[in-house]
Simulated scan of single mutants.
Amino acid sequence: MDSVNDTHNKYVAYVLWLFGFMGVHRFYLGRPISGTIYFFTLGLFLVGWIVDLFLIPGMEREADRRFIEGSHSYTLAWVLLTFLGIFGLHRMYLGKYITGVLYLLTGGLFLFGVIYDYWTLNQQVNDKNTEMFY
């Protein structure tokens, strides 16, 4: 059964799972701690990565419950971060033009900014989507 709130896409999570030994799909689905562990252990020595093939639907439903749907797409923000993060396009998408240009000029603040955004992007999009309510 699909969730009423559809913030994250299961199929995108599976595409990111292909890079999952680096934890990308876990970051996308709102699990930065285990994403970091996967990054440093190559997906728990590939065992956790394979197990996640079966856990993704549940993680996607949980992400849909945790985050607020709105005018900004979590999926688009994550695709921009994952594949073009050093250029700051995900930040520009969220209206953070100054830091977006800064990322563009510094390679994602020498990759430290990109790593920070892996930890915080879901919350950044969530905050942007709730701005219209306040």
Rank of each mutant, 00 (worst) to 15 (best):
S71M: 07
F112M: 12
K10R: 13
Y118S: 01
L44D: 02
N122E: 04
V101W: 04
L29Q: 08
V15R: 10
F40W: 14
F40V: 15
G35W: 11
G23I: 07
I56M: 07
G48Y: 12
L16S: 04
Y118W: 14
W119E: 00
Y74P: 03
L80T: 04
S3D: 15
H25F: 09
R26G: 01
F39M: 15
F54S: 09
D2M: 10
R65D: 13
I33E: 01
N122V: 08
M1A: 14
T82W: 13
D127N: 15
Y28S: 04
Q123R: 14
K10M: 10
V4F: 07
I37N: 00
G100I: 09
G108R: 10
S71V: 04
F87K: 06
N126C: 03
T75M: 06
N9K: 10
I33P: 00
K10T: 15
V51R: 12
L46C: 12
S34W: 11
L81V: 12
L55W: 14
V51W: 14
W49T: 08
G95I: 11
D2A: 15
G85Y: 10
G107F: 06
F19H: 00
H25T: 03
T41A: 06
G23D: 04
L109I: 15
L102Q: 02
L16C: 02
G88E: 03
P32G: 10
Y134R: 14
T120I: 08
T130Q: 13
G43C: 03
V47H: 02
W78E: 07
G20N: 06
V125G: 05
T7K: 09
I56N: 05
L76S: 10
V114D: 01
E131Q: 15
P32Q: 08
G95D: 08
R61N: 15
Y118H: 13
G23S: 03
V12S: 11
L42E: 02
L42V: 08
P57H: 11
D2K: 13
V12H: 02
W17E: 11
Y118K: 04
M132Q: 09
G23F: 12
Y116E: 01
H72W: 11
E131V: 08
L80W: 08
V114A: 08
L102A: 14
H25S: 05
V114S: 04
